[in-house]
């Protein structure tokens, strides 16, 4: 059995692709692209609007994977591991919180998002997933640690499959690369080169 890349999706600024094929493109001047994608996905999840952009992006990514691979729901609630990496993490929320701190009036709903792993919490809550999860800090193109740990989760049977997420949302940057990684005979083996190749499609 190999550890292989299954369904994958990318969000690069306003362009959304699933398995390399365009799914949605937000207008370049769309100020609320994430909301537009939420509407395109016909979601009804009021909590979405309380999230920071990092969490919104992560939650939307998982919906994209589910839409194109309904088999994800065949896994039981703790068989799916969430292995994410981010470069700038929650710097947007950090800056918002710091502004509030400078005014001596911190906001709990901003502060809670100053932990980048909240995106994993939001995904877990939305999908009722109780499995393994972890957030690494790494440059977008440095996926070695994330891949190594993800493989160990599958090889040790701690997770049956994993969702790999490479995520960043700050300033005007909205970048997501997400893939379902499963154990199967055939498919594209999970390694740095293959990941790079599929995500550049």
């Amino acid at each position: 059995m190999n550890v292989n890349i299954s369904t994958y999706c990318t969000v690069s600024n306003h362009l959304v692709k699933v398995n390399g094929t365009e799914y949605f493109e937000g207008a370049p001047d769309e100020p609320n692209f994430l909301k537009a994608l939420y509407q395109k996905l016909e979601m009804s999840y009021p909590k979405f609007f309380k999230m920071d952009d990092l969490s919104k992006l992560g939650v939307l990514g998982v919906e994209l994977l589910k839409l194109h691979n309904p088999e994800i729901s065949n896994y039981s609630d703790d068989e799916i591991g969430l292995v994410f990496q981010t470069s700038k993490g929650c710097i947007s929320s950090d800056l918002s919180h710091q502004e509030k701190v400078n005014k001596k009036s911190p906001s709990p709903s901003i502060f809670v998002y100053t932990l980048a792993n909240i995106v994993i919490g939001e995904i877990s809550i939305k999908n009722k997933w109780f499995g393994e999860s972890i957030l690494f800090i790494a440059e977008e193109n440095d996926t070695s640690s994330t891949i190594n740990y993800l493989k160990s989760l599958i090889l040790t049977n701690k997770s049956k499959c994993c969702i790999l997420g490479i995520i960043d949302a700050y300033d005007n940057k909205t970048e997501l690369k997400m893939a379902l990684i499963t154990k199967q005979e055939l498919g594209i083996a999970l390694n740095e080169q293959n990941l790079k190749a599929i995500f550049e499609k």
């Binding site: 792993n117 972890i134 957030l135 640690s145 740990y149 493989k151 160990s152 090889l155």
Partner: peptide
């Protein structure tokens, strides 16, 4: 490698270390 996972970061970092060694990476 940097693990940033709220208050479980330390325990999780040890788990990562354990698993990377036990899977011979």
């Amino acid at each position: 490698t940097l693990v940033s996972n709220a208050c479980i970061s330390g325990v999780l970092a040890l788990i990562v270390g354990h698993d990377l060694i036990s899977t011979n990476q």
